[in-house]
Amino acid sequence: MSKKNATSGYNRGRLLRTAMTVGMLAILFALPYFNHNEYQLDVLVSAGIFAILVLGLNVMTGYCGLLNLGYAAFFASGAYTYAILNVKYGLSFWVSLPACIISAGALGLVFGSCVLRLKGDYLALVTLGFGEITRIALNNMDGLTGGPNGLTLSHPVIRFANKSFDFGIKSLPYYYLSLLALLVTIIIMRRLSNSRFGRAWIAIKEDEVAAACMGINTGKLKLFAFCIGSAIAGFAGWLFAGKQGFVSPESFDFTTSIMLVAMLVLGGIGSISGAIVGALALTIIPELLRPLQEYRMFLFGAIMIIMMLFRPQGLLGGVRIFEEFRPVSERVRQEEDEVLAEDLKQ
């Protein structure tokens, strides 16, 4: 009797989740049919790109506990890789993708292997410095990056048989492209976080010494988290450059890095859904507050302070654990009851 209930309860939960996922996807894919507003779609595209970035940052900061205040540097690495390959070598958007991911990932690997022996605040400071240095370098390497004027590059084009479709400056194609990219990122994140690597990352964040004593090579796994996080930033940078058709150092400044951390903290550190909600909220709220002009930043700050006071774990913090809250397997329960009954007899 109780066995049946437990199993069907579990299945119902699973069914509900699947139904919700499918429903949400249907709404997201159908949205442009109901809403033709160019500007609103454009905001959503930005939100999507930010969501990918926050998911990447979440690997370092959320899972592994490595605060990165210069994440925009890796974002820039992906964007500029595409820009330079396109402008100097005429490579297309699609062909550049692997190069963008690899260049950002490699940057993360090299930078990480230099600085990951630092901990906590020291690491945060060094990453902050790295972000600033990258922006200044982009500003000054005129020959390669176009300096403060940036680089203008071509939008994505799809060629099929002898027809071709230019993404151009309309938001609609980018909406679907970023939605697809976000889905891919979510799947990667889910699989990683549910794997032995995800568990090891969280263990390192919780207690590095205990993690090492449990057989986890903490140095290697931290570097791995750094590398994956940067590679995802490169992916987002590629998308961003293609969508904008233009890159300049301004888009990759300290404010961007801080905004990404704020999104992560608002949504809930270490949670995939939290990262997405945080990115959506902090992209859309400032847009809604636009009528307030400069004053909107005050309101924005107030929202953050209220959040920290009343829900410091973030909007969806702790959701990852929630997924694991399934009923204890019936087999375990039964065996324990038998043991308990025997103990009582004695």
């Binding site: 699989r191 990683l192 794997s195 032995r196 690597f197 568990r199 090891a200 969280i202 263990a203 919780e206 207690d207 010494v209 205990a210 993690a211 449990m214 057989g215 986890i216 791995f224 270490g270 702790g318 654990i321 694991e324 809250f325």
Partner: peptide, 27 residues
Amino acid sequence: RVFASMSALENVMVGTFSRTNASVWSA
């Protein structure tokens, strides 16, 4: 020094890390 935010089961699963060898790619 348990891993505070993880479930009891996950805590124990962390212990098996060095005895398992699934690669990133297979994950």
